[in-house]
Each structure stands twice: as structure tokens, then as C-alpha cells.
Simulated scan of single mutants.
Amino acid sequence: MFPERFSNLPAYAFPRLRALLDVHEPGGEVRHMSIGEPKHAFPAWVTDVIVEHAAEFGRYPINEGTPELRAAIAGWLKRRYDADVDPDTQILALNGTREGLYNAGIALCPQGSTVLMPNPFYQVYMISAISAAAEPVFVPATDTTGHLPDFTTLPVDQLDRAALCYICSPANPQGVIADEAYWQALIELGEKHDFQILADECYSEVYRDTPPVGALQVAQAMGANAERVLTFHSLSKRSNLPGLRSGFVAGGPQSIARLKQLRAYAGAPIPMPLQRASERLWADEEHVVENRALYKAKYELADRIFGNVPGYMSPNAGMFLWLPVEDGEEATLKLWKETGVRVLPGSYLSRDTADGNPGQGFIRVALVAPYKDTETGLTLIRDCLFGQE
């Protein structure tokens, strides 16, 4: 009666976390550090823009995004990456990047292909591949590879069958950044084996010092096929607006046309007042600079608290710590029962392989709360799992 294609999937990360923890009483005040839901204030004027255009809730939204929104996005891509993108043919507004990352598999991936992705990874990559009747290929992103996947190590037959390659930079959960050389090598591999690169760059504006280089930026500088790279961005992390559900994908005209066609039948366009707010947000950098400074302060806080922990990785970008522990589930449960701090086992973001689960020896800790709350939570984690300073 029901399809079998999703029957062997594990429970999603957060239902698994609830099943692990909620049968036990917390050992202190509950502190949520498991989910990357930004808690910094978004610009106050966002509400004013939505109210100003509230009458447009009475209209069906423009599927591909208003001309003004697409122009604002194209302008941002030019300022941020010096990337030239036609707003009419190379940009599609999204109801959050997860929608686009999922639909890319449906719209662009032939059945029977392989879809390459890092391990650990954002789980929508795998579900997109399975939905497209493709084979997900999990490529370890561990300390031996600099916490970015080395796709060049894959067998030639898997590369030749590959249609899509998902890659996240700055990486979730590790926070490492793909540099220009990494992007060049991946794009060259895509050109050689004719697969498309889906660059999940939704954390690109949350970094310590140096702006991460972008996939589209490098592809254009190389003169790569315009269809080779699609980049996905969001206002959730950049502007502290996860509930706005506003992002975009930019790429080659043929790819965007196929995504637009699918979305016309099965998509959920952004409501018009929210598109109007998004227009303003992509045009404004002041609030982004302020937000980034708050995260930089918390990076430095984490360095102070965990600097003596063996294997600690100081974050250069993103909003997570990827902390080494003996066993992620055991550490998560111990933290909950003894302190009330709620984190996520690294294995919940990874898939088991013949060589084990690359997230098994980690926990992911979100740095999204205000500074003082973050300081308290990180101190509790250190004292509970690593011993007092």
C-alpha cells in the first residue's frame, strides 16, 4: 500500500534526540544548544515592511520571486562575489534553501545516477537523491580530509555515474571553509565527469574574519560551464530570520528553468509581503555586519573555554562547535542528565559506513543563544565532559 523507498531511513535527528533524552529528567535548567535556530535580533524594520505590504497577502505570490527581489539578489551576488547573474533567467527565490536543495534532485538528476555528498551532511541531500531514484554516495569529511569531503578519491565509475554533488561551505557541522583551491579542484572534477555542483552556502555570512570564497565566484573566474554550479543562500542565518522562509538559488539558465518549471507545479512561493521584506534585506549589509560581530565574540568565547581540550577545532565560520568526545550519544545523555544542556550527537548527522560513522565521536553545539547564555552553556559542557578548567 505504501512506497518502500523511504522505509530504511533512520528517524530524523531531532525526533531521535527527543527519544534519547526526554525519558530522563534534566539535571538542571534546560539550555537548548542542539538546533541552529538563530536567536539574535533581526532588523526592526522588517516588521514595518511586512505591515506596509500586508494587503499583498491577498495575492497569489509570484512563483520565481518579484523582479525587485531577483534584482536585489543579483546585486548582492555582484557585491559579495563579483558574480554576474541575470536576475530574469539565473535566479529563483525559494521558500528557504531546503526546498531548493530537495527539488534540485527531482528537477536535475536522472534516475540511476549517483549523488555525491559529504558525511556528516545536511539530511535533505540524501532524501533528495532517494526521491530522484538515485544512489546517494557518502564521502567522509573527517580530520584526515580537513573536514571537507575529498571527492577525488571516489572510484571512476561512481564519478562517471554522478549527476549531482552536494557540498556545504562553511560546513555544517564542522564550520570549515572551502578555499579557492578546493572549489577549483571540485569544479574541474565536475567538468571532467560532467556532474553539477550544488553549493549549499547558507552560512556564508557568518564567519570570523575573512569572507568565504563562493562556488559561483570561482566557477565564473575559471570560465566553467554556466550550468556546472548552483549556489543556494538563505536569510535564515544571514539575517536571523529562519521563520521568514526566504532564500534563493542561482545558477545556469537551463537549470533554473527546470527548477522554475517544477516549482510552478509543486512549489510553495514566498508570500508577497515576505518577498518585499526580503528585497530590503538583501540590499542591506549593516545588520549582517552587526550579526557577524556577535558570532565572532562567541567564537572567541569558545576558544577560551575549550582551548585546552585535545582535538578542539576553533570555528572560523558557521554557528556550531564540533566537539570531540568518546561517544556522541553517551556524552549527549550525560550532559542532559547532569546539567540540562541539550546538544546533538554527531552520529545523528552522519550515515554508517563500512569504516564506521564519522560523527560517532562528536557532539554538535549550537552557538545561537545570547552571549551570557552561551557562556553558561559552554562552561557546563566543559566542566561536565572535559573536567573543570
Rank of each mutant, 00 (worst) to 15 (best):
L349C: 08
R161T: 01
N291I: 14
P67E: 09
E56W: 06
L301S: 07
Q196H: 09
E29H: 02
L92C: 11
L20R: 02
A41S: 15
E4F: 04
A55R: 13
A11S: 08
L186I: 04
N103R: 14
G28K: 06
E329D: 06
T374W: 01
G243T: 07
G340C: 09
G346R: 07
A224Y: 05
N225V: 03
P38Y: 03
D82W: 05
S347I: 10
M319R: 07
A93S: 15
L244E: 05
L77E: 01
A71L: 08
N291M: 11
A74M: 08
E135H: 13
E300W: 04
F386Q: 12
L367I: 00
A171L: 00
E180C: 04
D82R: 12
A268C: 05
G96N: 08
D327M: 11
E29T: 15
A354H: 08
Q90W: 05
Y182R: 05
Q360F: 14
L20T: 06
I35G: 02
L281T: 09
Q158H: 13
P242R: 13
S255A: 15
V288W: 06
T374I: 03
N8W: 02
R79Y: 03
L159G: 05
H193A: 04
G359I: 11
E25A: 14
A83K: 03
D355K: 11
C168P: 00
A11R: 14
L235I: 04
Y207P: 08
L148N: 05
K260D: 08
E300V: 01
D82M: 11
I270G: 03
D88Q: 15
A133G: 11
A302D: 02
